[in-house]
């Protein structure tokens, strides 16, 4: 009797495990893979709501022009720290090959910023949920909560998180009054201008570009301008093989 019970139990428990796994996989269907080759990036089924995204047309990006970066850094009071080992940046320009790999034929410097990934590894690294993905797809930092452990900085494969090794206010000449500064000991990075979006404005780099090379919009809205551009052009993302699903795209 006891023996039978045990056998029965094992059988039932096995079925339970299978059922549990089935249920779990049902929950997980939303995540997973995104087609990342060229323009084939369409919204994943089951993904609803807004996902802010950016498209940089590198053909229109001028050599030596840094207006987008200057505008971004001024708007958000990003300190211009002198020491190269302590730089803080939300946006910077980097060699196209370094940025996008061998598919990119250009070695011209291209703008780079936080990719606002759908699967952000920084958020998985943060012990306090201080860096997290918002409902509109923006990966944001709660500067009131960040403990400064630099795990997100370590885990960002794009190196887009900066740490305030020293007091940022000391390196801030002409602060913009509309946005706070940060303090020593917290990390910071691009916020996709969530502060401007809420006021109905476009990101400052988009507005600052004299060539109109940067487009911004909702990637989950088939009628948005950025979706049309993505569908009509060949685009690249940074390190798509890592599965982070960046929301920043580049036209080469």
């Amino acid at each position: 009797m006891m023996h039978n019970d045990r056998r029965e139990f094992i059988r039932k428990a096995g079925i339970g495990m299978l059922a549990g796994m089935g249920a779990a996989s049902g929950i997980l269907t939303g995540g997973g893979f995104e087609r990342t080759t060229s323009a084939a990036w369409a919204a994943v089924p089951g993904e609803h709501g807004r996902r802010w995204g950016m498209l940089i047309d590198t053909r229109r990006c001028r050599e030596g022009c840094t207006l987008c970066i200057e505008s971004c850094h001024h708007t958000h009071n990003v300190p211009a720290v002198k020491s190269p080992d302590e730089t803080v940046e939300w946006m910077h320009k980097e060699d196209g090959r370094e940025l996008l790999g061998s598919l990119c034929s250009s070695t011209a410097a291209l703008p780079a910023l936080c990719n606002h990934c759908v699967e952000p590894s920084c958020a998985r690294a943060c012990p306090t949920d201080s860096i997290f993905r918002r409902t509109d797809g923006i990966v944001a930092i709660d500067y009131h909560r960040c403990v400064g452990c630099r795990s997100c900085m370590q885990s960002c494969p794009y190196g887009e998180v900066s740490f305030n090794w020293s007091d940022p206010r000391a390196s801030l000449k002409n602060p913009s009054l509309d946005y706070p500064t940060r303090q020593r000991g917290v990390v910071e990075k691009c916020n996709f201008c969530s502060d401007r979006l809420v006021r109905g404005k476009k990101p400052s780099c988009v507005e600052a570009c004299p060539e109109g090379a940067i487009s911004f919009g909702n990637l989950n809205d088939p009628s948005s301008e950025i979706r049309k551009l993505l569908e009509s052009s060949e685009t690249l993302q940074r390190k798509p093989e890592l599965g982070t699903r960046p929301s920043v795209f580049y036209i080469i």
């Binding site: 428990a13 339970g16 495990m17 059922a19 549990g20 796994m21 249920a23 779990a24 929950i27 997980l28 995540g31 993904e47 609803h48 709501g49 807004r50 759908v118 699967e119 952000p120 958020a123 998985r124 943060c126 949920d129 997290f132 993905r133 918002r134 409902t135 509109d136």
Partner: peptide, 22 residues
């Protein structure tokens, strides 16, 4: 067991918070 599995697996899903159309 099933509930435990579901909770475990879903808690280890990447950081995205529940998405609601804003």
């Amino acid at each position: 067991l099933a509930a435990l599995l579901v909770v475990l697996v879903s808690s280890f899903r990447a950081g995205a918070e529940s998405e609601s159309p804003a």
